[in-house]
Amino acid sequence: MKSKPVYNPLTLDTSARRHVFVAEGQDAVAALNDIVYAAEQSNTANSKVRVLVACSESVLIDALQMEEMDTAFYVAGAERFIWEVHRMLRNAGVAETRIQLALAGNVARSVYCIHCGTIDGLVEDTTHTCTRCGTVLVVRDHFSRYHGAYMGVRA
């Protein structure tokens, strides 16, 4: 499914001079350890590393105001979180090629009920009963980055 996200292993973006890491929580911090270390050790001139952990949306927005065109971003956390941050980064003008995402922590999926528009989080099965309208849904692989959720349609 072309829309289903594929999460490649994080690699340090050597075309950038600054690296900002955004972690949802401690699980995500662990997932980012290696690459943060690589960034700190990299010897590109003016290289700078910044790590944001479990920060509020307003803190992230303020941080983005300070960043410049030479920055690469790495985001780790649950699927819905990382795509929310992805959307904020894109709205702030970050190029798609400058954002890398990693799943960490709870890997269960969010499901968008096509019938009532509700998004339920932490769905582990491929079927799910919508918590709002009660429809039994099949969870498809068709994913929306905007909603941060997979499409659920009546079985």
Partner: peptide
């Protein structure tokens, strides 16, 4: 297909569910 679900998607993503065509390079 759902506008409400597909809103904001890129071309190849909103055509995600179409079988066979992606592999053939159609999109």
């Amino acid at each position: 297909w759902s506008l409400a679900f597909n809103i904001g998607m890129t071309f190849e993503h909103w055509h995600g569910p179409v079988p066979l065509a992606h592999e053939a390079g159609i999109f």
